[in-house]
Structure formats: structure tokens, C-alpha cells
Simulated scan of single mutants.
Amino acid sequence: MKNELNAAKLLAAFEVVMEKGTDTEFGKVYQGIEAYTDYDGYNVFLKGNGVELHIGFHNTYDLKYDQAHLKDSFLKKIDNLIRD
């Protein structure tokens, strides 16, 4: 995948979920997006709508999804989180 996602925007969305979300088993959820980290905080995850996004060290990322329309819907939710 090309470097098509803005890591700063993704991390901003992560912060919104962590600040405004309600507790889940792993982290917090807000507006259908769940956010959580691994034990050391170096890797963050955003998950929802059949999509999982892993943001790693040096702003690398891995976006997993089965269908393109799910990815598009997920990324729109991410945009809405930082717009509000």
C-alpha cells in the first residue's frame, strides 16, 4: 500500500477516541471506532466496521480489511472524529 494515510491525522483520531470514548475490554470506543494500544504504547490500533488499523513505530501502518467499501467507510469515520 502506498503511503496514502496521514499518520498525524490517524493519531489525532486515536486521541479523540481515548479522550471521549467509553471503556471496552481493550481500550475505548467512540462513534463506532475502538482504540487501544499494546502493553508498551508503541503500537496503537483503531478498529471498527470490519477494518483494523495498526500504527507502529516511526508512523508505519498496516490497514486490514476484506472489502474496499468497508475501508472507505472506516476512513470517513476517522475524518469525522477529527472534524468534530
Rank of each mutant, 00 (worst) to 15 (best):
T24H: 01
T37P: 00
E19K: 15
K47L: 05
E4Q: 09
K9F: 01
V29P: 01
G27R: 02
V29G: 00
A12V: 05
N80G: 14
A35L: 12
L10K: 06
G27Y: 01
D79V: 02
G48H: 00
L5I: 09
N80V: 06
F74S: 05
A12R: 11
T60L: 06
D72E: 15
D66F: 09
N80L: 15
K77D: 15
G48A: 04
M18K: 14
V16M: 08
Y36H: 13
N80I: 03
G41N: 08
I33R: 01
H69Q: 07
D23Q: 13
N80A: 15
T60N: 10
N49Y: 08
D66Y: 08
D72R: 11
M18R: 12
L75F: 09
N49E: 08
S73Q: 11
D23H: 02
L46F: 11
L75M: 15
A7I: 13
F26P: 01
N43F: 06
Q67E: 14
L70D: 14
L70C: 06
K28G: 03
Y42A: 08
E52M: 11
N6L: 09
E19Q: 14
L63V: 08
Y65T: 11
Y61I: 04
Y42N: 13
E52V: 10
Y39C: 10
D40F: 04
Q67D: 12
V17D: 04
E19I: 01
G50N: 08
T22L: 03
K76M: 02
T24I: 00
Y36T: 04
H54I: 05
E19F: 03
L81T: 12
D38S: 04
Y39I: 06
N6R: 12
V17Y: 05
L53G: 03
G27T: 10
L53N: 07
E15L: 11
H69V: 10
N59S: 13
L53Y: 05
F26I: 03
G27C: 07
D38H: 03
D66E: 12
F45C: 02
I78H: 10
F57H: 11
N3C: 01
V44L: 12
T24W: 00
L81R: 12
E15C: 05
I78Y: 13
I82G: 04
A68N: 09
G50K: 07
K76P: 00
K71A: 10
G56E: 01
G50R: 03
T22V: 12
V51N: 06
G56L: 00
E4T: 01
H54P: 03
M1A: 12
Y42K: 11
F45S: 02
K77P: 01
K76D: 07
G56S: 07
L81F: 10
M1F: 07
M18L: 06
E34G: 05
T24N: 02
L70P: 00
V16I: 15
V17W: 05
F74A: 03
L75Q: 04
N6Q: 10
M1K: 08
I78W: 14
G50I: 12
L81N: 05
L11Y: 09
A8M: 02
Y30P: 03
L63M: 09
A8I: 11
V51I: 10
K28H: 08
E34D: 03
L53I: 05
Y39M: 06
N6M: 04
T22Y: 12
T37F: 00
L46A: 12
L53C: 08
K71D: 04
D40R: 02
G41W: 00
Y36I: 02
N43W: 07
A7V: 11
F26K: 13
K2E: 06
L81S: 04
T60V: 03
G50W: 08
E25C: 00
E34M: 09
